[in-house]
């Protein structure tokens, strides 16, 4: 598995996707910080660090992350079809499950790295803009919240992987992630947001879910979505003929 993971990292060498994803993950904190900074300058309201971190996480998780991670997921899994390298890997042979697992591991690392970049950029922007309320405990608490959101979004990548493998194309994956994002935006302040896996993920991470439903319901919905995606992916990929 270590060698397989090494080769997955090697495949990213000179890939523009990595740098683009870093830039993508920096969009939310920069956008939120810029908006707060302008407000601070024009209306004289002191910008608070905790608000910056919370708003960044809302925009990052609900708006940016799903399409961004969807593109990364599609890139990782679909490129073996697009570049016709799958037939080589499977005849070396790499067991199909190991191939899926190594890509999932890389995806996990990639998502967590982008999560840290988003968090780091928020902190950096807040520091440069001299936002109030900087404290070590706030930093650590927000880092924990960002990481939880990252892990939950990673778990919710399994249906995206399934769609990518079945349709063998970037476009349907991107369309699906845009649809998920639109529903995210619609449900962002809805009392039933705990029932939708992607908005539930943000609510769990930030502790902002309303008490309409017990928290366990949101956990179960996320787990069922992730496990169903995982099972569908594994069953499909184990059986599919490679043409």
């Amino acid at each position: 598995m270590v060698n397989l993971l090494y080769t997955e990292v090697l495949k990213l060498k000179r890939s523009k996707m990595f740098m683009l994803s870093i830039l993508g993950s920096a969009v939310a904190p920069l956008m939120v910080a810029a908006a707060m900074f302008v407000q601070m300058q024009t209306k004289g309201i002191m910008a608070q660090m905790d608000i910056l971190l919370l708003n960044t996480s809302i925009y990052a998780v609900l708006v940016i992350a799903v399409p961004l991670y969807g593109v990364i997921t599609a890139y990782l899994y679909n490129r073996e079809y697009a570049e016709d390298t799958l037939k080589n890997l499977l005849t070396i042979p790499v067991p199909r499950i190991s191939l899926l697992a190594s890509k999932w591991l890389l995806l996990f690392g990639w998502i967590m790295l982008l999560t840290v970049v988003t968090w780091g950029m928020a902190i950096l922007s807040g520091a440069i803009g001299q936002f109030a309320g900087f404290s070590l405990s706030l930093l650590l608490q927000s880092l924990g919240q960002y990481m939880v959101a990252g892990v939950l979004l990673f778990l919710l990548s399994t249906p995206i992987v399934f769609i990518t493998l079945v349709l063998k194309n970037f476009v349907p994956t991107i369309i699906v992630t845009i649809m998920i994002t639109l529903i995210n935006v619609m449900l962002a302040t809805n009392e039933h947001r705990g029932l939708y896996p992607w908005t539930a993920a943000l609510g769990i991470a930030n502790g902002t879910l309303e008490s309409t439903y017990p928290l366990i319901v949101s956990y179960v919905i996320i787990a069922v979505t992730a496990i169903a995606g995982l099972i569908a992916t594994v069953v499909y990929f184990k059986r599919v003929d490679i043409h």
């Binding site: 495949k11 060498k13 000179r14 570049e83 390298t85 037939k87 005849t91």
Partner: peptide, 12 residues
């Protein structure tokens, strides 16, 4: 084996 036109990672 080599099946039809071989596929490679073109960035490598």
């Amino acid at each position: 084996s080599m099946v039809e036109v071989p596929g490679f990672y073109e960035n490598l």
